[in-house]
Design a protein around this nucleic acid. Sequence first.
DNA 1: CATTACCTGCAA
DNA 2: TTGCAGGTAATG
Length: 298
Amino acid sequence: MPELPEVETIVRELRPLVVGRTIRDVWFDWPNQIKHPAPADFAARARDREIMAVERRGKWVIMSLGPQDAPYGEPAPAVLAIQVKMTGQLDVIPLGMPRDGHVHAVLALDDGNELRMRDTRKFGRLAVYSPSEAERVLGALGPEPLAEAFTVAEFRHLLRRRKARLKPLLMDQAFLAGVGNIYADEALWRARLHPLRSANGLRADQESALYRALRDVLSEAIEHRGSSVDDYRAPGGIGQMQHRLNVYGRTGKPCPRCGRPTRRMVIGARSSHFCSWCQRLPARERTPQAQALLARAE
DNA sequence: CATTACCTGCAA
DNA sequence: TTGCAGGTAATG
């Protein structure tokens, strides 16, 4: 399930394969995956544009497209934005290679290759935006946790304005861009914080620990090309970070730090994994709702 | 703020 | 055959 490190890996591996190429044709067979503009207009908006750059913003793959050079094309640049969500895979391979039934979008490039998205569950989305539309959509995202400009002081400030539980808050893309279920659980484990803790109830040293934990785990995951737990695969193959996860998907297994069992509980309709000992919830934060959730933990 | 729809594959 | 997995948009 691609989060920041997985999308970063996809972007790095895609970049040398598509930058400088021009999109010559567009095909798709599942219009629901076209987020913008209307599916009927999508191909015309994307066609005959050069891919100038490939970047990541949160969990989005962002391709800057040059102006259309076709006779009646738009003289303005555009942005191709792709969300791979749960099961999307991007590949650049020779045009016309056999497709299985899960390839639902293909961009033909001018070098005889195609950029294809394979997506079993069809949650992935493709959009072509004008630069100002892209700015609006991406502007709704929170800060990039690995950006140099993202300091512990800023993180502290953001945490103190929110009373929400840490787990759903870390996954809120408007709060912080790019963190999903895996790395939220892993960062909380590293920082020894219970997922139900309130953001504005942390001590200063705990705020710093969480900042460091987030940056460390995301950087380490990028070094290992992401976690291939289900369908995630970058253009260069699967990642290796799944072997280095300490709590995610390890329900019942011993905590690598203290040996006590890893527990799993449902918070905001998503599973959370945490150490029953290292990440205790202070008595002060054991509200009736928290107690009820904890009672249902495995 | 919490829940549901979107989807399919696969485990129970 | 049911239900769960989960990122995000949409809805209550």
